[in-house]
Design a binder for these strands. Structure first.
Lengths: 331, 331
DNA sequence: TTGAAAGCGCTACCAT
DNA sequence: ATGGTAGCGCTTTCAA
């Protein structure tokens, strides 16, 4: 069923039907009523892509993340989707994984679907070498990245200063007398590297000689943090605090420590990252660095809308993180 | 830039360009090369909705859930999105909340965007009274619901027998000597009601007189389960086991019990629901009823594709849950 | 206030 | 193997 069917039934032209559909003026109340009634009776729904073909906008934003089943990305997607919907936009979701060819493919799909913009969630979308696909996309539509930064025309970034956050965290631990602070991390992404950098800065600031020796890598798997901690304990490396790059690792670490009879926070303090719901679910609850996904996400959408309205918009924006204190490391 | 620009530059007709785009035969290797080169040089991306206008399919599926930030829905969305992408479909995500008018609005949006089908995740989309919007949608496209069931033409359902799962769980606890089994739940949705039904059946089967008195309602908030447990302990109601309708409640319950010096599982056994990652994160780890979102989600997509291909498809399908044993209730 | 018709980019059918 | 063209459903401009 289309606009022609409605026009015929209502005995008007398609132009009139279109006017009514788009709430334009110049239609008498009588005909409006008549047409609306027919639409209702026939259960008519306008065809968005026929419309989009002429208008070249379908009110749809491509939202990319590596994996929505990850609690952190899920939160970002949720906020972005809600914010967009409120403004009359839909979210076309692309979960790409971390493989670059899949990411490029996803960009092409979004481009062919003629989305009005693309929001990239997470620094995994900042490639260290080839960002040509981003540049290509930005030629036709604005591209916004959360926790990354592109130097292209028509790209925008909104990030959290995780480097400073990490440094501050080390200092906060140091103030409470901690010197031997382990860092366990899971990813070498753009964001991952900045966290490490902040950690090293902090450790150097408190006078540690070889901060690198305190760093270990893990995958996000909870058991991995456990085995890692086991190894460290066996190796008799001294430590009184642990920082992790995500809350899940903190949970794994705490579990392992507890099994060895090491008490958190009495014997060892633990600080996680992301301030996810997991921090509250753990026993003890986890002190965690909040990198403010909610603000980042909300702001990304807001920035986008400003770009649509041709308002002047900062190309890059940085906000501050905050340590949320819980049981695993008291203030 | 469009197919005409490409045709002009490559000095062929648009028909030829279209053929190449769609991998149809009858194009000489030479011209194909030539045209592909032009496309590449100009960074051409075909316009999906112009194409959709003729084909009446934009290879896009509406995926609805009440809230992707919920770990359970996030997992379902993740699986569905991946499965769809693999088959060349995109997912248009709608997080509607539980308000019926918002759900109806979302359906209208999806309909106007002419998605090829709609997948509803969760029994929150099964209204107890008015499902007219579902019926309307199913008139033009297939509608699939996970954990619900509609009786309309062109609707399909795939669900987990949570009622039986709950009954079996009560019986399993009973076999280990538990008689006083509390049930704490969070939602009166279609699925929520079936869980309660199963619980009551189980309790009656093991000879409990007034199973209803063992049931308490909570919101999903972790602290709610805590205060509830506190109240129950104060009231001196006797119990040796707790079943909860979601894992989060189980975590809340365990925390509260632990604070009162009640040990899990030595003093009280606890069983959660969903078998989410939270079950592993908790201390002790939580025995949980796995209602197989992964299978449900995968199957939903598979069903859809079968419908698209006009294969004969079961209108309703039920799969069995499974109790995954962990520390909070040993086998 | 209303209607007629062009044009949006593409596919598919019919010719050549 | 290639080209011409109608038609998909809608918006918008121009006329009436």
């Amino acid at each position: 069923m289309n606009i022609y069917d409605i026009a015929e039934k209502a005995e008007v032209s398609i132009a009139t039907v279109s006017r009514i559909l788009n709430h334009k003026g110049n239609v008498s109340p009588k005909t409006r009523e008549k047409v609306l009634k027919v639409m209702d009776e026939m259960g008519y729904t306008p065809n968005a892509f026929a419309r989009a073909l002429g208008l070249d906008s379908i009110k749809m934003i491509g939202v990319m993340c590596s994996d929505v089943s990850d609690i952190y990305y899920a939160k970002a997607v949720s906020i972005i989707e809600n914010e967009l919907r409120e403004k009359g936009y839909d979210a076309l979701l692309c979960c790409t994984g971390t493989n670059i060819s899949d990411k490029k493919k996803a960009i092409d799909v979004l481009l062919s679907k003629r989305v009005d913009a693309i929001i990239l969630i997470g620094s995994v979308f900042q490639e260290s070498t080839d960002n040509s696909h981003i540049k290509k996309a930005a030629k036709s539509i604005p591209v916004i990245i959360i926790n990354g930064e592109f130097k292209f025309e028509n790209t925008y970034s909104i990030m959290c200063d995780e480097q400073k956050a990490m440094r501050d965290c080390v200092l906060a631990l140091s103030e409470k007398g901690h010197k031997d602070i382990l860092y366990i991390y899971d990813s070498d992404s753009f964001s991952g590297k900045r966290k490490i950098k902040g950690y090293i800065e902090g450790m150097e600031q408190i006078g540690t000689d070889n901060p690198e020796t305190y760093i270990s890598k893990c995958n996000k798997d909870i058991s991995c943090a456990g085995t890692l901690i086991n190894d460290i304990i066996k190796s008799e490396i001294k430590f009184s605090a642990i920082i992790t790059s995500v809350d899940t690792l903190a949970i794994g670490a705490i579990k392992a420590l507890t099994k060895h009879g090491i008490k958190v926070p009495e014997d060892v303090s633990v600080v996680g990252f992301n301030n996810s719901i997991l921090a509250d679910f753990s026993s003890p609850t986890i002190t965690s660095i909040d990198n403010k996904v909610d603000i980042l996400s909300t702001d990304a959408v807001r920035t986008l809308l400003d770009v649509f309205e041709n308002k002047s918009v900062a190309k890059a924006k940085t906000i501050q993180a905050e340590i949320i204190y819980r049981e695993s490391f008291a203030k």
